[in-house]
Write a protein that binds this DNA or RNA. Sequence first.
DNA 1: TAGATTGTTAATCGATTAACAATC
DNA 2: TAGATTGTTAATCGATTAACAATC
Lengths: 205, 205
Amino acid sequence: MKKLPRKIITRVLLYIRTLEGLVKEKRFLVSSKQLSEITGLSDVKIRKDISNFKKVGKPRIGYKTVDLKKTLENYLLQNNTVHLVLFGVGNLGSAILQYPGFNRDKIKFVAAFDVSRHKIGKKINGVGIYPVERAPVIIKRCHADIGIIAVPKEQGQEVADYMVLSGLHRIVNFAPCSISVPAKVQVRNIDFTIEFLSLFCDSPK
Amino acid sequence: MKKLPRKIITRVLLYIRTLEGLVKEKRFLVSSKQLSEITGLSDVKIRKDISNFKKVGKPRIGYKTVDLKKTLENYLLQNNTVHLVLFGVGNLGSAILQYPGFNRDKIKFVAAFDVSRHKIGKKINGVGIYPVERAPVIIKRCHADIGIIAVPKEQGQEVADYMVLSGLHRIVNFAPCSISVPAKVQVRNIDFTIEFLSLFCDSPK
DNA sequence: TAGATTGTTAATCGATTAACAATC
DNA sequence: TAGATTGTTAATCGATTAACAATC
C-alpha cells in the first residue's frame, strides 16, 4: 500500500482517538456522517481517508467501531510501540510526561534528560530523569524513536545537534526557535505563541 | 488587502519570530535565501508570502530586518494586544502560563480559571487564578480574545460550552477530545499524542 | 556593467469536493 | 423494494514551484 501523506495520517489518528471513545461508550456502529459531526471534518473526506485501507464499511449500515479502529491501528501502528525521550524537564517537559493521551499502550516515554542536579535521579509519572550525557547510550539501548525538545530556546539548537548525534532522526520541537538538522531528520515544530497568534489573526474582530 | 489563509499567516508569524532573533543579533539585512536556510521553507515561498504586503525588499540587497519585521507585524497584529484566558491550571496549564514566547508585548494572559480551592487566589507568572464562575464577567471586562482549554478531556466539552456562553469565539483545545461548538467559533486542536504518532507513522523505520 | 536578488506570472502539483454508481 | 450509506471517479479548488522579467 502506498505511503500516505502526513495530513491524512494525522486525520486517521483523530479517527482512531474518536473510535476509542465510541468503543468505550459501547457504540457498535458509526457512519461517516456521525464521525463528521464529532470531528468537524467532512463526511466525504472521512470516507476517502478510510478507503485508503481495506473495505471495511457496509453501505446503509456504516462502520463497526471496533473493526474500523483495529483496521486503522493495524495499518498505521502495526505492532509497534513508539519510544519517546524528552530533553528538558521544566514546566512544559513535566506536563508532557504527564499528558493523558490515547493509545497509552502504543506510546512509551523511556527516559527524560536534564542538566539540573535536583531533577536527575527523580521520576515523573514513572519516567526516570537522567543526566544529558547518558542520552546516547540510553537512546540506543531503548531504541528511542522520537526526541522531544522542551528546553529554553537558547539551548534548542545545541540539544537538537546532540539528539541527532545520539541517533534520533525524529524530533518534536516545543522550543520557540528554529533548529537546523540534516535532511534525513524529520522535525515537527510546535510554538504555542504562533498557534495563539495565528488563530487570532485568522479571525480578526 | 485580501484576507490571507491561515497557512500563510502561520508562516508569516514564523518570519516575525525569526526576524526578532536576527534583529536581536544586530543583523540589518537578510535575503529570502537566508530566511529559507533558517526556517527550512523554500525561498520562493517566502518571497511570495512577503509579497502579500507592500514592496519592502530590494533586489540584490534583500530585506532590512527591522523594516520587514515591522511591516509584517503591522499588517498581522496592527496595534492589537491579544488577550488570553486559560481554563485548567494543572501541569499543562501552568506550563502554558510560563511559556516564553516571542512578541511578549503583543500577548497577555488576563486570567486563569480552575475549580481547585488550593489554586484559586494564587498567581502563576503574574496571572491570577479565579473560580470558573467568574469567567463570564472577567472575559467581558478584559475583552479576552482567545480561550485555552487545558482541563482533563472529560470536562473538555463542558468547558467549551461555558467558554462560548461567556462570549469567547476562539478556542485552542489542548485536551485530547473533540469539542463541538457553533459555526462562528474557531477551534484549534492540539493533541500531543497525535503529534507524536503522526511524526512516527509519517517516517517509519 | 554584470550578477544577484526581488516580485510576479504561468505551470504543476496535491488536496478537497461534487457527482454518482454500487450495495446492503 | 426503497432509501441510506459506502466507495470511487471526475471536477474543482488552492497551494507550491518553475520560469523569468524587473531592478538595484
